[in-house]
Design a protein around this nucleic acid. Structure first.
Lengths: 337, 337
DNA sequence: CTTCCGTATCGAATCGATTCGATCGTGCGC
DNA sequence: GCGCACGATCGAATCGATTCGATACGGAAG
């Protein structure tokens, strides 16, 4: 048995003749090579990284941001002989709080893609199991690794850019506030229920720039259609804002489309800024002013955090820089009469 | 030990008091519940379905078709306590032909999403390992399960629709021909190198309708940009076609955009048909004439094929129907003078 | 011819849970 | 009061590969 193991794994000394003899015998018995489960049990490692993608796959994967990060992650994990197991996030509130896979699947490390809420039941389940966890864009905790970007600083830069252009009536369109994913204007007392960390940080960036938004509109997800309805709502009311800072490019492009539909010129009548730095060909000829984050690098950073755990190091923290890219969707504030 | 097992699994008779005593002891020893690897080894099942998504994740996941099928699959597999392991397809020809995960990862069943080429090295690797395999849109083989749609009939319907509108000069834009993914007009002798089954079938549908395309343009992937360049090429030459039947909606919408850019009216100057039945909001106000395939059901069908394997049944074959949806992008052929 | 050394092969324990059969204890019926 | 039956608990084998220590075999040096 041990010789056969050597013959297949190649580790340890073995005569070429013996190796061949083992391989022939294997073929005769149609033994198809070592069973991964045995190896994994013995090694104490499954070689699997569980990745929790936001709610339903369909919704998550419509977001190019998620996909590009996932792509960067898989590219980094591949050479380490690690596989990615897809774990759906908690989709509907009526069902179980965490997917059963999170409780029972074999995985060496877990990644929560949109870290989100501070009291996440998924995080609790993973702690209970003792699974090392990497949190992307979540609230930092001492026992988890964190990967994030400078959300706050980026949003501050974008807002300052709008200020420099002379805007004073600035509205903002945000990512979801909490798991309920309500849509609409946010009243002051709802600000307390802001459990989604990424939303909080980007909102804080606006405040950092010294701006109090004339309106805060929360969306259920980062999708063009939600940006569009936000845009319609914000741009048809009285006291129209002259600039709208959005927390994602998809939302921003929805707002631009809404403005066009309403007969408003961008950026002459209203300026719009985004966040992420996606390619948005269908906005042509406009180019969105946005905060560019390094998406593939973010995925790679997650991969390195995973690597750290597997090499025995403790939880690590990585923050990636962002840069402001000025496009054609922001311009000087219109004269107010 | 056996009592502890019973206490955790819940199977078999156990007194509530004993159960509690076991749980307390577990907490005291900070034992975090049964190790999945042990269970999997004993059961002989990993609970994992390996899914090979076309080449690089980034490219695959930009295709809404892939995502919707994957979503349907995950939804079906979830209740069966099965997880999806992402396996990148062979991305570049210089690297290894199959991803190492395909050779070494533990999985009960494998799914090849875009079955593609007849001599697929991945299929060989899976056969060698003895892993039951589900092929989506691939060439049927006796030892694999197949899930597909009526590609040929659907394309035939779309082409017949164009014929009824009086079109005689019909061009077609196809999915990739082989792993090399060349782009451009297809010469007759290249037809022999058509190793991608889905492309072959949809092309056969055109022929079934009695049409010999005036031009066949192959693309490297089902993306809007490739449709656009195909459209530009086909619509600027002499002897412009009056109708273009495309093998995917993304390609078709690229062709529509190209036509608009060239100042051609759709459908007055040129009719365009697609395949898939996606929502394409950015084509508004146009609605694409297309062959609608049930994407989520396709994913579910894959899930059922997996289920069949796990319940001991042999490889099954499923073919789903398609329907022609007439939109606003096809109309009567213009008068030829 | 004996001894020593290095290489190739073999034995056996181990990873952790499951599960069938065996044992133990108790309550009930006769 | 005795035996039987049933329900709860325990022992031990098993899944399959890995790996450390031990053994056997070959040649080379003394």
């Amino acid at each position: 048995m041990s010789t056969a193991s050597l013959a297949f794994s190649g580790a340890g000394p073995i005569a070429a003749a013996t190796r061949q003899r083992v391989l022939d015998a294997a073929a005769a018995l149609d033994y198809s090579g070592p069973n991964p489960l045995g190896r994994q049990l013995r090694r104490g490692r499954s070689g699997i990284v569980g990745v929790v993608v936001g709610d339903s796959l369909r919704r998550s994967f419509r977001d190019p941001v998620a996909i590009q990060v996932l792509d960067g992650l898989v590219s980094t994990l591949g050479p380490l002989d690690l596989g990615v197991l897809l774990i759906p996030g908690s989709s509907d509130p009526s069902g179980p709080a965490v997917d059963p896979l999170l409780e029972t699947a074999a995985m060496d490390v877990a990644v929560i893609m949109w870290g989100g809420t501070t009291d996440d039941p998924m995080l609790g389940a993973l702690r209970r199991r003792g699974t090392p966890t990497v949190l992307v864009e979540g609230q930092h905790a001492p026992d988890v690794a964190s990967v994030g970007i400078d959300d706050r600083g980026g949003m501050r830069q974008a807002t300052e850019h709008l200020l420099e252009l002379g805007h004073t009536r600035i509205a903002t369109v945000t990512l979801p506030f909490d798991r309920c994913r309500g849509e609409g204007l946010v009243s002051p007392d709802e600000m307390d229920h802001l459990s989604w960390e990424i939303t909080r940080r980007r909102l804080a960036g606006v405040t950092d720039a010294g701006v109090t938004p004339v309106a805060i509109w929360a969306t259920p997800a980062s999708l063009v259609e939600h940006g569009r309805s936000a845009g319609v709502a914000l741009l048809t009311g009285a006291d129209r804002p002259t600039a709208i800072a959005c927390q994602s490019d998809l939302l921003a492009s929805g707002v631009v489309l809404a403005a066009r539909e309403l007969g408003l010129r961008v950026p002459e009548d209203v300026s719009v800024s985004g966040f992420d730095g996606l390619d948005l060909p269908w906005l042509a000829p406009d180019v969105l002013t946005t905060v560019v984050q390094p998406l593939a690098e973010k995925g790679a950073a997650v991969g390195h955090a995973v690597e750290d755990f597997l090499s025995g190091a403790g939880p690590s923290t990585r923050e990636l820089p962002v840069t402001l890219r000025i496009g054609t969707t922001t311009g000087p504030a219109p004269d107010v009469s």
